[in-house]
């Protein structure tokens, strides 16, 4: 009985969750070939921009935040607890609330409509540092000690022992960062004021909020924009699930 009820709930839910994808695909299909013929917006350029931003941001975040997380977890500097406190305190500040102040800083640096303005401010994720720190606290110490005995410095141990043994966790964080970076909207909307620096989300939005958008072409462009992420999602779902589960644990 319970079993039957479960399936009676699962099947309609599945249909409801898939309908939007079907609606997108069906409307996009006739125009998929014409998607790069857009004259109103630099669509191909926006895809390139999104790719560059997402790749740089993912690599930068993972490198910077894992280094900091390792330092905070493992190096017995006497002020380390204070530094950790200063990092964790920023988690209390909602990220989107800082977009006005961050805009002020970025515009003062002259980084409006500039790749640096799109990429750099997003590199310093306190959440990532915290997750990496938690992970490195549980990293087996004997492995590191073996590296030390072989004459490696802390830096050497980090790159030759710790990182190669942490690829699963690094991949989990990287997949989440990549999807987040590709899909972000508010920050690029604020920073990329010149259409040559638009990311694909800003480009799509400019069409969606314009007068009389050409529906089929717009659906085709949207489909092209989600293909890379659906690919990442399908191939790396294992890591993604782990990353999300880890993120949730910070809240506890």
């Amino acid at each position: 009985m319970m079993r039957l009820l479960r399936w009676l709930a699962l099947i309609p839910a599945t249909v409801l969750f898939l309908v939007p994808f079907v609606a997108l695909g069906v409307q996009a299909w006739p125009a998929l070939g014409d998607v790069f013929s857009y004259k109103e917006i630099p669509f191909a350029r926006s895809l390139v921009n999104s790719t560059v931003v997402a790749v740089l941001q993912t690599v930068g975040q993972v490198v910077l935040c894992s280094l900091a997380g390792y330092g905070l977890a493992r190096i017995p500097y006497r002020h380390a607890p204070k530094v950790l406190y200063a990092v964790v305190a920023t988690l209390m500040v909602p990220t989107a609330v800082t977009f006005v102040p961050s805009f002020v800083v970025v515009s003062s640096l002259g980084w409006l409509s500039d790749l640096r303005g799109l990429v750099v401010p997003g590199l310093f994720s306190a959440v990532n540092v915290f997750l990496f720190r938690q992970y490195f606290l549980d990293f087996p110490v004997p492995l590191e000690e073996a590296g030390r005995l072989d004459g490696l410095s802390r830096w050497g141990v980090y790159w030759r022992v710790v990182v190669p043994n942490s690829t699963g966790f690094v991949a989990a964080i990287a997949v989440i960062d990549f999807i987040g970076s590709w899909n972000q909207f508010l920050w690029p909307l604020v920073i990329a004021q010149d259409s040559s620096t638009w990311t694909v989300q800003v480009a799509l939005s400019s069409l969606l909020t314009a007068q009389n958008p050409r529906t089929t072409l717009l659906f085709a462009a949207a489909t092209v924009s989600i293909l890379p992420i659906v690919g990442v999602f399908t191939l790396l779902q294992r890591y993604l699930v782990r990353g999300v589960a880890e993120t949730g644990l910070t809240g506890q």
């Binding site: 699962l10 599945t14 909207f185 924009s225 659906v230």
Partner: peptide
Amino acid sequence: FFRSVFFLPFACSYVVASLVWKMSL
């Protein structure tokens, strides 16, 4: 399979979802 189906929208941006909701659904 079911886990993937319910999780898949996470890969979709709010902009693309807005487009589907506003102009199709």
